[in-house]
Amino acid sequence: MATRLARKLPSSFSAFSSSPITKLTSGISPPSMSHGGPGLRCASSSSSSSTTTTGSNSSSSKREKKITDRLSAVIDAVNDRKLPTELRGQRNKVRSETDIINVVEQRIWHSMEEGQFENLAGKGKPLNLNTNPHADPAEDTLYRILSKNGCAPEWVELNKEIRNKVFEWRVALKKAWTSKCNGNDEEKWIERCESLKKQLRDINDKVFRYNLIVPFGRQMFGLKWEKEVARLEE
């Protein structure tokens, strides 16, 4: 039996070698690594994409630089228009506001020498202070109504009240300090200090409220106990 199988094996092997699968596998060759192979094709495609990216970046940077140059040119033109005609186109020579002020003063002197201020309307007449051309029309009307009725805006009245309170408080502090320096009881000085500090807090509260309602630029500082006492010690 074994001998028969051994005799049949070569024929089976030959049949297997001549089968269609063997023919198909024998026809398959390994991937070529020649000049036009897939590996080099990928490398060439990646290099071309990197070149395209670099080109797009350079074009975008050029576009941004062009826009920046245009904006800077517009800003320079606007700043140049703000200058007097004598200094236009010479912004590099303008070092400070003093140069502009000098040009304005020269214009005023030239106008005075030419007599342009001689025949002004209202010359020699009192100024009309019933209206404020720099104030809002609604506020100006309100202020005139208050003035005719003998009243003033709240912040004006509060300003007067604060100044009177500060004056009275400083007089009281000076009296207490003089009494202390004359050798009076220390306990009275401490009691007066507590009372004066309470009044100082009330004054500072009014100052805080005043600063909230007063027009811009008219704010005032509050009082500080240490600073007021240091003034008396000097």
Results as ranks from 00 to 15, higher is better:
Arg95Met: 06
Gly55Thr: 15
Leu71Ile: 14
Ser56Phe: 04
Arg91Met: 09
Ser61Leu: 10
Lys82Pro: 00
Lys65Ile: 05
Ala77Phe: 06
Leu83Gly: 02
Leu71Gly: 00
Ser56Lys: 12
Gln90Asp: 03
Ser56Asp: 11
Lys65Pro: 00
Ser96His: 07
Ser58Asp: 12
Ala77Leu: 07
Ser72Met: 11
Lys66Thr: 13
Ser72Asn: 15
Arg70Cys: 04
Lys93Ser: 14
Arg70Gln: 13
Arg95Ile: 07
Glu86His: 01
Ser60Arg: 11
Gly89Tyr: 03
Gly89Met: 03
Thr85His: 03
Lys82Ile: 08
Arg70Pro: 00
Arg88Leu: 02
Ser58Val: 07
Ile67Lys: 15
Asp76Val: 04
Ser58Glu: 10
Lys82Thr: 06
Ile75Gly: 00
Arg95Ala: 14
Arg91Asn: 05
Ser61His: 07
Ser56Gly: 01
Arg91Val: 00
Asn57Gly: 03
Leu71Tyr: 07
Arg81Lys: 12
Asp80Phe: 02
Val78Glu: 13
Asn79Arg: 11
Val78Trp: 06
Leu87Ser: 04
Ser56Ile: 05
Ser56Ala: 14
Lys65Arg: 09
Arg70Lys: 11
Ala77Lys: 07
Asn57Ala: 12
Asn57Glu: 10
Lys62Gly: 14
Thr85Asp: 08
Val94Trp: 03
Lys65Gly: 06
Lys66Pro: 00
Asn79Pro: 00
Ser60Leu: 11
Val78Phe: 06
Ile67His: 10
Gln90Lys: 13
Ile75Leu: 11
Leu83Tyr: 01
Arg91Pro: 00
Lys93Tyr: 04
Lys62His: 07
Ser72Val: 13
Lys62Pro: 01
Gln90Cys: 03
Pro84Phe: 08
Leu87Arg: 02
Gln90Trp: 02
Ser61Met: 09
Asp69Cys: 05
Lys93Thr: 11
Lys66Ile: 06
Gly89Pro: 02
Glu86Trp: 01
Arg95Asp: 06
Asp80Ala: 05
Ser60Pro: 02
Arg70Met: 08
Lys65Met: 07
Ile67Gln: 14
Val74Asp: 10
Ala77Ser: 12
Arg70Ser: 15
Ile75Ala: 12
Ser72Tyr: 08
Asp76Leu: 11
Ile67Leu: 14
Lys65Val: 03
Lys93Glu: 15
Thr68Ser: 15
Asp80Ile: 04
Thr54Lys: 12
Lys82Met: 15
